[in-house]
Simulated scan of single mutants.
Amino acid sequence: MSNQKPVGILTATKINDAGAPAHVLASKLNGDLLLYQLGNMDTVSSQITLDTGVLSSCWHPTSNTKAYTGNLDGTIWDVDLEKSIVNPMNSSHLLGVRKLMFLDENQILSGSWDKSLALTDIRSPLNHKYRVGLPGKVLAMDSSFNSYETVVSMTDRIIHVYDKRDFSKPVNVRESGLRYQVRDLKILPNRKGYATCSIEGKASIEYFSEQDLHLNYAFKCHRTPQQEVDLVSPVNCIQFDERERLFTGGSDCRICEWNYHEKKRLKQFSKEPWPVLTMSIREKYLVYGLSDDGYKNMVSERNEYSVEESSVGLKILD
C-alpha cells in the first residue's frame, strides 16, 4: 500500500502588517500560499502554489500585496500576491528556512535547519548580505521591529540573544528553560524577555537581564486529565495581543488565554476539530491554523495515514 504524505500541513498564518487588518496569508508544507479576506475566512480569495514546500512566510511591513516565503529547499521567494508572480531571491541556505521575518522595511532575517542565520537586503540585485553560522538548527525566533532585540532558539536547548544591528556575535548565550524541543518563541510586549513553548506541554517566560533571572518561570499547559496521568500535548504556537495577554495553541486542539504577569489562565476556548499549529494576532483579531498532525505519531513510515484537510479560523478578542 502506498503512503499519503502529510503535504497539506499549515506552516504559518499571517495577518497583513500594513494599514488596517484586512488580509490573511496562509502557507502550507505542500507549497500552497492561500490569501483570505479577514471578513470572509471561509473562502480563499486567491491561491499560488510554489514548486517547493513552504516552511515560513511573512508580509512586507509596508505592503498588502507583497509577501516572502522561506522554503523547504533552502530558497527564499518574493511573492506578488496581486499579480500572482513569484521570484527567487539569492539565498545562502542549504536546508529548509524554518523562520523568516523583516527587521526593518528592507532587511529580512532568515533562520535555517542548516545551522545558520542570513540577512537579506531586498533592494540589492544580489539580495544576500551576510550569513552567520550557529551551533544548532533554528527552531524558532523573533525580533522586535521597533527595537533591537532578536532571539533565536535552536536544537540542544541553545538560545542566542542578538542586537539586530550586529549579528556577528550574540550579546547573550543561554540554555532554554524548557527541557524539550521549542516550537515557538515571542518577545514579551515590554521587550524585557521572551516566551517559549515546547512539545512537552509547557511554556516559559524568561528575562534578558541578569537581575531579572529570578523571575523566570515555566508552566504546564495543554494537558488533558486522564484516569491516572495527564495526556501531554505539544504547545505549537504562542502570541501576545495589545493588552499583553498571552495566547497558546496546542495539539490538544485548543487555544488558551493567559495573564502571564499573574501566572494565571484566563480562558480556554472551545475545542477545535484539529490541532492548532499556527496563530497570528493583530488588534482584536486572532487568526489560527488547524492541521491534522497525527502523522507524527506513526510508528513506521510503512503505516498508511490519510491527512485531513487543513483550515484557517478567526476569533474576535474581547
Rank of each mutant, 00 (worst) to 15 (best):
R123M: 01
L25P: 03
L103E: 10
S45C: 10
I48L: 15
Y148H: 09
D121Y: 02
D73C: 04
V132A: 00
L35N: 06
P88M: 09
P88L: 11
R131K: 12
T75E: 04
S124H: 02
G70L: 14
N30W: 06
S46A: 11
D32A: 15
R98F: 03
M41T: 14
C58E: 12
T43V: 13
Q47S: 15
L29N: 11
V152P: 00
L29C: 10
L33D: 09
V54S: 09
L109R: 05
A22M: 08
A22N: 12
G31I: 09
D142Y: 01
W113S: 05
P135Q: 08
N71P: 03
L72C: 08
N40T: 10
W59I: 07
T52F: 05
P135D: 14
L117W: 01
T65S: 14
I122V: 07
E105W: 03
R131T: 15
D80N: 15
I85M: 11
N146T: 13
P125L: 04
G96T: 04
K115C: 11
N71E: 05
S143E: 02
G70H: 13
L72Q: 10
K137R: 08
S27K: 07
G111K: 03
S27W: 06
D32V: 08
H23S: 12
M141K: 01
T120E: 04
V132H: 00
D51R: 11
S112W: 01
D73S: 06
H60V: 06
P88T: 12
S143P: 00
H93C: 05
Y68T: 07
V132W: 00
G96I: 03
L126K: 07
T75H: 01
L38A: 08
K28Y: 10
G31C: 11
V79L: 09
L100I: 15
S112R: 02
L35G: 05
D80A: 08
G111W: 02
H93V: 02
Q107I: 13
Q37M: 08
L29R: 13
A26V: 14
I108K: 05
G136K: 02
V79H: 03
G39N: 15
D104S: 13
A26Y: 11
F145K: 10
A26D: 13
A26C: 15
T43H: 09
S27T: 15
G133V: 00
K137L: 00
N64H: 06
I76F: 05
N90D: 14
D142G: 02
L103N: 09
D80T: 08
